[in-house]
Amino acid sequence: MPLLDIASQCPSLLASYALGTTAANARALDSTEERIQDYRREQRILSDNSISGQSVQRGTLPPDTRPYLAPDWPTLAENTMPSVIALSAIEQPYGFAENSPAWLIPGVQQNAATAALTHYRAWQKGWAKQDAKRQHQTICGGFVIEGNRVLTAAHCVDRQEALRIRTAGGEWRAAHVVGADVTQDVALLEFEGDPLPPIKVANTLPRPGQDVMAIGSPSGYGFAVGVGIVAWHGLDAKMLSPNDFMLVTASVVGGNSGGVVVNTHGEAVSLVSYGSGSYTQTVPIDRALTVAGQLAK
């Protein structure tokens, strides 16, 4: 073939080569994606089977086998309130250097460039005006376990400052974090002033179908109650540290986190973690107290 003809066909040859290469890469990519999806399905099945095999009555507490006790919710709420608190806080200032993307780069934290970028972004986004509007707002619930110590959910105190609690009697107390385990969503707080009566703790866990009541601060309304039943005991793989959880149907809206769940005897059976549709994941009280003990040390 003459050299001129070969040269004239180069663009089409190159295009064919590129098209073939692209098609081959696409097929390889599809094959790789299929293998990834197959692997994920296999792992999900293994995980589901593992969780299903362990989704029975769990934890260190035995199931509650006492005779059925019809709930008297008004009396239970009234008797429980002295041990319940509403948690209030102020969000951290917007101008913290952590808000700068440069903060994520190792070695640049707190240097002159980061400080300059932070100041620029603060001016650009009007952080100073936003910070001036910050004020206390009720964000979560909690309950007293002993003296001046309160249990709440760890995510409630993340990136918050100037914590304070409000008692059922309307008194405000300054508080601080003793410790928080984000992986298990349990935090231990300590407040100032006179101690409050600790909540009565259950030595059994309610069985699926048994009545429970949750007390928290939905949408900032402190000391609101919601009732339901225990739906499930098992493992929650959505948490950073999959562990025992108790699913309840007591209504939960943003702000119930950290609140207490009590049985019809008025005993604390779990700590509210988060809501998922009509259901609420809660930390069984035995595990919550174990984590609190570790945080106290």
Results as ranks from 00 to 15, higher is better:
Ala202Phe: 00
Val230Trp: 03
Val230Cys: 09
Phe245Thr: 15
Phe191His: 10
Val227Tyr: 08
Met239Leu: 14
Val253Ile: 13
Ser219Lys: 15
Phe223His: 10
Asn256Ile: 00
Asn203Gly: 12
Gly222Gln: 01
Asn243Phe: 08
Gly209Leu: 02
Ala202Val: 01
Met213Ile: 10
Leu189Asn: 01
Ser217Trp: 09
Phe191Ser: 06
Pro208Tyr: 06
Val262Gly: 05
Gly234Cys: 07
Phe191Thr: 07
Lys200Tyr: 09
Ala268Trp: 04
Ser217Gln: 07
Phe245Arg: 14
Leu205Ile: 13
Pro198Lys: 01
Glu267Asp: 03
Leu196Val: 04
Met239Ser: 12
Phe223Arg: 08
Ala214Pro: 07
Lys200Phe: 06
Ala231Leu: 07
Gly275Met: 01
Ser273Glu: 10
Val225Gln: 14
Gly220Arg: 09
Gly234Val: 03
Met239Thr: 12
Asn243Ile: 09
Asn263Asp: 13
Gly277Asn: 02
Asp194Thr: 13
Ala214Arg: 03
Phe245Gln: 13
Asp194Cys: 08
Leu196Arg: 05
Gly222His: 03
Trp232Thr: 10
Ser251Tyr: 11
Val253Gln: 15
Gly220Phe: 07
Asp244Ser: 12
Gly209Thr: 01
Gly275Leu: 00
Ile199Gly: 04
Thr204Leu: 08
Leu189Ser: 01
Pro198Trp: 00
Phe223Met: 02
Leu235Phe: 13
Gly209His: 04
Ser273Phe: 08
Pro218Cys: 07
Asp236Ser: 06
Val227Lys: 08
Lys238Phe: 11
Tyr221Leu: 15
